[in-house]
């Protein structure tokens, strides 16, 4: 079979992977603290992996597209007011730290609440970490300051811990708005001067619906083109078999 068909198939599969990512982003357009995902592709020559053979020019031309990674766009999402004193939006770099049975996890979803014992928890019930571990608030009117300081009835009871991972955080999405550290991730706690918080606010997902729609169109039309190419290729094959092979 003509090797072009495999090149076309790899393109169609890449379009499907992109569609999955766009659908995932659009499905999370209302998830606070969600960070958009993108898929990365690269060109893979057909002769890759057969290093013993010298790369032939023919194989170079007939390359394929291969998915290499899912990358996450950790840029700031828009911040909107919520009026709930325990909603905390990060307006600068960093992540909140929560403790889970699997170890520390990181999140930008600051829609916190208190549990029955007065611990500060996420909507999933995991305890939010302060500078000294779990944060337990005494009875009273709680407020969070711009540097993460928590006060109850005017007296300071702790500070919400915010850690940073630098320019390109090596974090893996785990679902439930949590990120797990990838191998090599180093969490650097931010001090009070570096933390930028907006109490009573929510950081919305950093997804632009319009870009998502444009990408949908692009993916869809691209896929259609691959299918058209496949049909044409099939016609060529058909012609070669029936016409050239005709005897007499």
């Amino acid at each position: 079979m003509n090797r072009t068909v495999y090149t076309i198939t790899s393109g169609a599969l890449a379009a499907l992977a992109r569609l999955d990512a766009v659908a995932q982003n659009l499905a999370n357009v209302a998830t606070p603290g969600y960070k958009a995902e993108r898929v990365l592709f690269r060109v893979r020559p057909l002769d890759e992996g057969t290093a013993a053979v010298a790369p032939s020019d023919v194989a170079r031309t007939a390359a394929q597209v291969a998915q290499v990674a899912t990358v996450r766009d950790f840029s700031q999402g828009p911040v909107r007011q919520s009026g709930n004193p325990l909603d905390v939006a990060l307006t600068g770099p960093g992540f909140f730290v929560v403790s889970t049975p699997r170890g520390e996890r990181y999140t930008r979803q600051g829609t916190f609440a208190l549990d029955g014992e007065g611990f500060l928890v996420t909507q999933g019930g995991q305890r939010v970490q302060g500078d000294g571990g779990d944060v337990q608030l005494p009875d009273g009117v709680a407020a969070v300051g711009n540097d993460g300081t928590i006060t109850v009835n005017g007296s300071q009871v702790g500070r919400i811990k915010v850690v940073d991972f630098g320019e390109k955080p090596a974090l893996v999405a785990e679902g439930h708005a949590l990120f797990a550290p990838a191998p090599g991730a180093v969490a650097v706690p931010l001090d009070a001067t570096a933390v930028r918080l907006e109490p009573g606010a929510i950081e919305a997902a950093n997804i632009d619906a319009v870009t998502g729609l444009v990408e949908l169109i692009e993916v869809s039309r691209g896929f259609e083109a691959y299918m058209q190419a496949m049909t044409r290729l099939d016609q060529v094959a058909e012609r070669s078999i029936t016409d050239i092979g005709r005897v007499g």
């Binding site: 999955d20 990512a21 499905a27 995902e37 290499v68 990674a69 899912t70 090596a170 893996v172 990838a182």
Partner: peptide
């Protein structure tokens, strides 16, 4: 591979 391939 620094980030792997994950599909949400």
């Amino acid at each position: 591979s620094p980030t792997g391939i994950q599909v949400g």
